[in-house]
Amino acid sequence: MANALPAQAFSKDQCVAGLRAAVGIIEKWAASSEQACRILRISRSTHTRAKQRDPDWSVALDADQMQRISFVLNIHAALRLVFDNPDNVYGFPAMANHNEFFNGRSPLEIMSQGDMVSLYETFRRIDVLRGAQW
């Protein structure tokens, strides 16, 4: 019988730093609190606390939540490589996109469906803009 692999543990400092960075980016994308909570799979109270910047606050996140944070950070990095203008870097996720995957919806609408597949596929399509090879 095979042993299950242990879940990767993240320190509370890593969780706080990652969550605050992701929340800040998503806020600059003009997402609602509800959208941010769905994208990151966090509660409204955790979202509010992350925005408050209390130095004594800590949070423990699971691997799924940390992966979601990673996707947000990587989408942001890809957009910064593609666009020079901050208005485009932060505005692109809220813009209607008419390619086949988005079908007139914005990347933000797709990501805020809340499932990991939508977040991953959005990342993949944005990452391609910078010339990423799959």
Rank of each mutant, 00 (worst) to 15 (best):
L5N: 14
P6K: 05
P6V: 08
A9F: 10
A9Y: 11
S11I: 03
S11V: 04
K12F: 06
K12Y: 10
Q14E: 03
C15T: 04
C15V: 05
V16R: 01
V16G: 00
G18M: 02
G18D: 00
G18T: 00
G18C: 02
L19W: 00
L19G: 01
R20A: 03
R20W: 01
A21W: 06
A21I: 03
A22K: 06
A22C: 13
V23E: 06
G24W: 02
E27R: 13
A30R: 15
A31S: 15
C37Q: 14
C37I: 12
R38V: 09
R38Y: 12
L40V: 06
R44W: 14
R44Y: 15
R44D: 15
R44M: 15
S45F: 06
S45A: 11
H47P: 02
T48Q: 14
T48W: 12
R49S: 12
R49Q: 12
R49I: 06
A50L: 03
K51I: 04
Q52K: 11
R53D: 10
P55K: 08
W57N: 03
S58G: 11
S58T: 14
V59E: 04
V59G: 06
A60W: 04
L61F: 02
L61Y: 07
D62P: 00
Q67N: 09
Q67T: 10
I69W: 00
I69F: 01
S70T: 13
L73R: 04
N74Q: 04
H76R: 08
R80K: 11
R80F: 07
L81N: 14
V82Q: 02
D84S: 14
D84C: 07
N88V: 05
N88D: 15
V89R: 04
V89H: 08
Y90D: 05
Y90F: 12
Y90C: 05
G91A: 05
G91E: 05
P93M: 10
P93Y: 13
A94D: 10
A94I: 13
M95I: 13
M95A: 13
A96M: 13
N97I: 10
H98R: 06
E100P: 07
F101I: 09
F101R: 11
F102T: 11
N103W: 08
R105C: 11
P107Y: 11
P107H: 07
L108A: 10
L108N: 06
S112N: 07
Q113P: 07
G114P: 04
D115V: 05
D115Y: 02
D115T: 05
L119R: 04
Y120I: 02
Y120K: 00
T122A: 02
I126A: 03
D127T: 00
V128K: 11
V128G: 07
G131V: 00
A132C: 10
Q133S: 07
